[in-house]
Computed example of a mutant assay.
Amino acid sequence: MSTSHPWTGVFPAITTQMHRDGSLDLDATATHAEVLIQSGIRGLIFLGSLGENQMLTSAEKRLVMKEMVGAVKGRIPVVSGVAETSTADATAFARDCEAAGVDGFMLMPAMCYKTPDPEETLTHFRTVAAATGLPIMIYNNPISYGNDITPEMFATLADTKNFVALKESSGNTRRITDLRNTVGDRYAIFTGVDDLALESAVLGIDGWVAGTGIAFPKENQRLWELMQAGKWQEAVAIYRWFTPLLHLDVHIKFVQYIKLCVQECGLGKEWTRAPRLPLTGAEREAVLKVIHDGIASRPSAG
């Protein structure tokens, strides 16, 4: 892990807590953020995919970020997801968040636009970056968003100074080595796939955008520290326990699954906003079994 990057370590993607009617619960979001901060994380990402960015109104997103900046009080970087449909909306959101005191961004491709033209994606990223002087993590998730940012594209973007990190969520760990071979240490490389965290750490990453770990922050942080120390036998033991829970992060209903996990661990509520619906029936029972088995057998985080 490089120590020269401004962002390294665990940057969890926190949920946006809601009341049962779908309205924002900012107090609960701030309370959960505090638990995560106390676990030793290095940054917090609000309004990512797990934070239901696209389900919130423009005004709500700005309110969330204003309130969370106030709650964190500068102790660690507060990062906002940028997941707008148009480049104009993305640049406006970045400017407003910077004015509100946000410390940086996790930038996704333009939502709902699966472009076959890499130049359009690169132009979107460059335009948003030009709207702010804050550091930016580029989020590559071709499985969910239909736009693949290749190592060669990251090399093209390397001259934009405020692109400081990338979140690699292609699900292909070969990409980590390809990225190192193509761009060296130009960016901090974060894994964004929970159940590939150990495999990614072996290949040399700088950080982890954790999902399920927001429900098990002490264990998640302990696993990260063991991996960074090269204590692989101890890390594998925790990882084997954690993996059924980490699989919850890669299901199409990962928001509902992880929010349910957060609830069962006493750190929030499961409520999401439509079109996402609460889990029911056999699916709910199956997820609850994974969660309760994990809670019952959780290892010491010390």
Score class of each variant (00 low, 15 high):
Glu234Ser: 11
Asp96Met: 08
Lys269Val: 06
Ala59Asn: 12
Arg174Pro: 00
Val250Cys: 10
Ala155Gln: 14
Val10Pro: 07
Ala59Ser: 15
Glu168His: 05
Gly281Arg: 09
Leu157Lys: 08
Lys161Trp: 04
Glu52Val: 02
Arg62Gly: 03
Thr123Met: 11
Phe163Gly: 12
Phe11Trp: 09
Leu134Gly: 02
Ile138Thr: 08
Lys269Gly: 10
Gln256Arg: 14
His32Gly: 03
Gly101Ala: 01
Asp148Ile: 02
Ala210Asp: 08
Ile45Lys: 13
Thr8Val: 14
His32Lys: 02
Lys253Phe: 10
Gly40Arg: 08
Ala158Arg: 07
Asp25Lys: 01
Arg186Gly: 03
His292Ala: 01
Ile258Ala: 03
Gly213Ser: 13
Val290His: 01
Val102Pro: 10
Gly211Asp: 02
Gly51Ile: 11
Ile138Trp: 07
Met227Lys: 10
Asn181Ile: 01
Ser300Trp: 05
Ile295Leu: 15
Glu234Ile: 06
Gly81Pro: 05
Asp117Thr: 11
Leu134Gln: 10
Val35Asn: 15
Gln38Thr: 09
Ser200Trp: 04
Glu60Ile: 12
Asp249Cys: 14
Leu196Phe: 05
Ala188Gly: 09
Phe242Cys: 08
Gly104Asn: 01
Lys218Pro: 01
Val209Met: 14
Glu199Asp: 08
Leu24Tyr: 04
Val193Lys: 05
Gly302Ile: 06
Arg62Tyr: 00
Val255Leu: 12
Phe11Thr: 09
Leu248Met: 13
Val69Gly: 06
